[in-house]
Every structure is written in C-alpha cells, then in structure tokens.
Amino acid sequence: MNFNTIGYWILESIEGIKKNKKTFFIGLGTMFFMLTLIGGLYIIYLNANSFMGDVSESESKVEIFVNDVTEDDVTIILSKLYQIDGISDIEYVTAEQNYEDAKALGLAEAISVEDNAFHPSFKLTIDNVKNGNISPIRNAIHGIPELYEKIHSEKGFETTETVIKWAITVRVVTWTLLIIFILIGCFIMMNSIKLALYSRRKEISIMKYVGATDRFTKAPFIIEGLIIAILAACITLIVTRLVYGGLAEFAEANKMFSFVVPVNEVLGSMSILLFVVAVGIGTIGSSMSISKYLDV
C-alpha cells in the first residue's frame, strides 16, 4: 500500500459521497439520531451513577436499635460485629445518648428518657455499598444470635438496598439499550453503504475483473462509512455541548440537583465512547454490507 493508493481511496470515498448525496444525508441523519440516543443514554448513566454515589455515600451508615442489652451483651455483640467483613466502623449508642441527640435536633421535647421511647443502638459504617454487599452484611448481622433476638428496629438497610437495586437496574438497562442501539447503528450503516454499493456495483464488478483485491475494493466504502459515522459523532457532541451544557449550567446556577455531572466531564468520556462506537459501526457496518458484492 502506498500514499497514492490511500489518496485514491479517500478521493473515491468523497466522489462516492458526492454521487450519492441523498443517501449520504440519510445515513448521516440516522447515524446522528442513533448516536444522540447512545449519548443521551450515556448522560443518564453518568448522572444516575453520580446520584447513586451521593445517596449511597450518605446511606452507608446503618443503625440497629435493640431492646435492653447488658454490658456483657454489648461486648459480645461488638466483638462479633467486628468480625464481619465490610463493616469499617461500629459505634454503640446508649438510649440516653439517642435521647440527647433527638433532643438536640428538637425531636424529643415532649418525651422524657424515662418514657422508654428510646433504645440503645449500634451504628455501623459499611464500605463499598455501591458494590452491592449490603445484603450479605445484613445476613451476617442477623446471624449473631445475641443481637438478632434483641433487635427492635433497623434504619438505613432498606434505603441502601433500594438504591443499590436501582443502580444495578439503571446499569443493566443502559448497557442493554446501548448494545441494541449499536446493533441498530450497524444495521443503518449497512443499509447506507448497501445503497452506495448498489449504485456502484458495475464499478466494483469491473474492479474485480481487472484484478483488484478485496481490501482495495472495500477500502473506499469503509472510508465512506467512517466519514458518515465520525461526522455524525462530531455533530452529536456539538449538540450535547449546547443542550446538556445549557441544562447543566442552569441547574448549577439555580443550585438544583447537586449530582448533575458537569458538561466538560461528560464530553470528555462521551467523545471517546462516541468515536469508538462510530468507528466500530462505520467499519463493521460497511464491511458486512460489501462482502456479498465482492463475490465476482
């Protein structure tokens, strides 16, 4: 391969685009639509992760309220809690202290500590909640008989579990949709290139008869597919900068939704994702569509 050949391929691709302007714009439009959906999903994914990060951080502390426990019970329970992996910090809070805390927050003015409305508790800090390790830890805690039989109530487990479930669901749905959109993108690209191929099938057949290799015949069409895909990716990024950038700046200016990921952070990783997807779709889609025309 020499520079002449590469230059010839690029010129042929541009010629191909000029000859089939309508097909080119249809391909570009549909690819832009597809990449916008992929980009949109990615933005949802990033913001959902950011939101989950915020929530799971604040909810990684759980509290187990217990009925009357003796000092011996507390010692045994604490020693067994420390043996559970994933718990980074444990604090025992007496009923009196809980009452004082509630009073400090203005929540216990009408109640006195003697009313027995407050219970002692174990405050636990759990590591890596995002990884979904909350249920095994909860089961391990419930496996301590000295604690389990005295549990009055628990705080934090349900919320954290819900947040984790949502995080996993968002992740699975996002990746599934991403794969579906990528496949649809390939299909669109295949059809765009097929139309271009159809209009140039005579040229391809002559190329094959005079001894062009498959690689040489494919190259201009693959370049054409890449031009469409990369151009669509650039337009998608510009539109994202304008639309998402505007929304993110508005949210920041109005101190709304603290979890919103800044536009520059989104564009950084999204540009890599879109270009990888675009190059993949452009190459795979156009390669797949041309194969049958090469059988001359």
Binding site: M1, N2, N4, T5, Y8, I206, M207, V210, G211, A212, F216, T217
Partner: peptide
Amino acid sequence: AFAMRVIEANS
C-alpha cells in the same frame, strides 16, 4: 487508468 489504479500501480 482505472484498471491500473485498482491494482495499485504508481502514477
């Protein structure tokens, strides 16, 4: 020239 270009002959 097309027949030569496609076999990657030089200009």
